Simulated scan of single mutants.
Amino acid sequence: MTTYTYLKNGFRLALLTGLRREELVTLSWNDLFYSEKKGCLMFVIDNLKVERITGKKYKSKYVPVGPDLMDLLTELGYDDFKGSDLFILVPNRKVKHTTIMSTLSRGFSHYYMQAFPDNKLKQFKVLRKTYISYLNKEVGDSVIELTSHGSMKVVNKHYVDAEVVAKGLTMKIFE
């Protein structure tokens, strides 16, 4: 039996960054930048999906590193690995990115059905939708700058879950 010790951290990283699977598995420690001007740490990454589809360079995505994400990064080795070319998730890989992406999806579905056997199956991408819903609540229309979407119409149609926003007005994702 193979164990996938990175699943839990992969789910948490997805929930705390809102990244798509392909962005998540290629995220490296050298994607972290500290903005002297803004006084904050953030990930600055390429929008892989749009660039793959259009074949052109697209505006970068910015993911702010809040307290919850910083706690996870510290657990994953921030002090030892910051600035390195190592991947954040599964740094010493012996498998392809696509294998990790597939395992994250299958693992999420498996554990979701274990936790909620009577509910309709949710896919891994629900973590992105949850993140963007919470981010939208916090920053409003500026969410398009952080997610690199073209308009709020796209964000509202595909990502903002009104039910999640309503239920989570006072909730912290990790305590």
Results as ranks from 00 to 15, higher is better:
residue 120 K to A: 07
residue 72 L to F: 04
residue 172 K to E: 15
residue 127 L to M: 11
residue 50 V to H: 06
residue 40 C to M: 14
residue 139 V to L: 08
residue 107 G to T: 11
residue 65 V to Y: 10
residue 39 G to C: 13
residue 74 T to F: 05
residue 27 L to W: 02
residue 138 E to N: 10
residue 39 G to T: 13
residue 65 V to M: 07
residue 135 L to T: 06
residue 138 E to H: 14
residue 162 A to S: 12
residue 89 L to V: 04
residue 138 E to F: 07
residue 171 M to R: 15
residue 45 I to Y: 04
residue 76 L to F: 03
residue 157 K to I: 06
residue 128 R to K: 08
residue 52 R to V: 01
residue 113 M to N: 14
residue 133 S to Y: 12
residue 32 L to Y: 02
residue 115 A to V: 09
residue 101 M to F: 06
residue 37 K to A: 10
residue 89 L to I: 11
residue 105 S to M: 01
residue 164 V to D: 08
residue 4 Y to F: 13
residue 19 L to E: 08
residue 144 I to G: 11
residue 116 F to V: 03
residue 118 D to C: 01
residue 174 F to P: 01
residue 87 F to S: 13
residue 98 T to K: 09
residue 80 D to E: 12
residue 1 M to D: 05
residue 9 N to K: 14
residue 21 R to I: 09
residue 172 K to N: 14
residue 128 R to P: 05
residue 7 L to Y: 08
residue 58 Y to N: 08
residue 23 E to Q: 15
residue 84 S to I: 04
residue 49 K to L: 04
residue 22 E to F: 07
residue 22 E to N: 08
residue 1 M to V: 03
residue 91 P to R: 09
residue 161 D to Y: 09
residue 22 E to R: 13
residue 111 Y to T: 00
residue 130 T to V: 11
residue 161 D to R: 01
residue 79 D to Y: 10
residue 28 S to L: 09
residue 110 H to G: 00
residue 48 L to V: 07
residue 2 T to I: 13
